[in-house]
Design a protein around this nucleic acid. Structure first.
Lengths: 154, 154
DNA sequence: ATGAGATAGTTGCAATGGCAATCAAATTTT
DNA sequence: AAAATTTGATTGCCATTGCAACTATCTCAT
């Protein structure tokens, strides 16, 4: 602005760059492991997880979009694909005829159960095992502050 | 495997979920701010930054791809676009005729200078200001451990 | 009840990005 | 030095995704 840019100092730069790098590596690694072992992407796995947390394994589309950090149109198509491969069903909402539920099928529950084992193992191996308990807590606390008020699911 | 999945406990889950959430929010926010203020995406900004760090504002394509966490084909097209809008030039490498340098143009330097101010302000506002100095250091340390041996650029 | 506006969800379209194949040039092997 | 392999980079093709536009339904003010 008036003067030259007040650049990020070393700690600030390390925090920001390692955030990009750690996220990228973790995401790609976990995604690859799920695809190889179970034929679903991490994004699809996230849909199954959040669906399973709703009443009777069913969640409204908008809520699912928010939980999985994707746009509504993006979610529509992800669900379309998961329906096509038999892991989800769509159910019309009786209270609000505009609404739609995504519902886990028995096959979806089974896929989720199997994929969760792979996913949890991956998170432990690629993230948690690299940190002490204290470091992990500090990481969780700091990241939650950065993420802001995003605790509940909806 | 023999027994049920050993689920993530509370701290582990908080760390992992907040990583996804914090990254998503930060990335989208910083991207939007750059697009609005300077007409370039965050991904493009990253290319300008890493190019500026090379000798004479020039970097080999492969090195740039690695630094910006994108595939080589993805980088080829990003650079194509930045060339089309006049922020970069391509220069053939004399020592290795297969190679190509991306080189910042004067316009590219100017755009970088302006965009950096916006970007740094955004990082401070959306990440750094939410943490104490101690928390920030803990975050940087933890994320670097998760990211592994990715310090140098190339 | 009716019309204005908000909300749930889907679709067209365009941008982005990765994988595999390809081409050119460098390096290694024999 | 010819052949085989590796490496740098680009392109074709396809999958994913977001924005804007659209439809259907709901809510609220009058």
């Amino acid at each position: 602005m008036g003067m030259g840019t007040n650049w990020l100092n070393d700690v600030e730069m390390r925090a920001w760059r390692s955030m990009l790098s750690a996220h990228s590596q973790l995401y790609n690694q976990l995604d690859e492991e799920l695809v190889k072992a179970h034929g679903i992407t991490f994004a699809e796995y996230e849909v199954l997880v959040h669906t399973s947390e709703g009443q009777g394994g069913s969640v409204r589309m908008a809520s699912l979009a928010e939980a999985t950090l994707v746009s509504r149109s993006g979610l529509t198509r992800r669900v379309q694909h998961l329906v096509a491969v038999g892991l989800l069903e769509r159910r019309r909402c009786k209270e609000d005829k505009r609404g739609t539920f995504a519902v886990l099928t028995p096959l979806g529950w089974e896929k989720l159960r199997a994929a969760a084992a792979t996913h949890v193992r991956g998170v432990r191996e690629h993230m948690i095992s690299k940190l002490s308990r204290v470091e992990l807590e500090a990481l969780a606390d700091a990241l939650e502050k950065v993420a802001g008020q995003n605790s509940g699911l909806g």
